[in-house]
Amino acid sequence: MRNSANNTIKAQGKDMTVLELTVNNHPGVMSHICNLFSRRAYNVEGIVCIPIGKGETSRMWLQVNEEVKLEQIIKQVKKQEDVLEVERHDSGHEVFLRLASVV
């Protein structure tokens, strides 16, 4: 994960692509997703994860700072056994905007 000064505004989520994932909720799922990003050298600026429904699944939002590799990243994320759904938000997501107001 990388952070640079000129990305500060972007990192607050204004126009950075956000991937919204629905995943099986178990203790290893964060490891799986984070490991995928570090192993394949994809940059993630922010991660938010929270259980949904009865706790069987979780929702994850990944703020991804990669333009060229984005298609590749989505394909790799979709391959994960624990990933049930991937939604792409090219103009950012309000989760990060709201978080930015409390940090």
């Binding site: 203790p27 799986h32 490991n35 192993r39 056994e81």
Partner: peptide, 14 residues
Amino acid sequence: TYGMTIPITKHNYL
């Protein structure tokens, strides 16, 4: 073992 095998398996379980 679970953590170490995440990047070298198609999938893994504990």
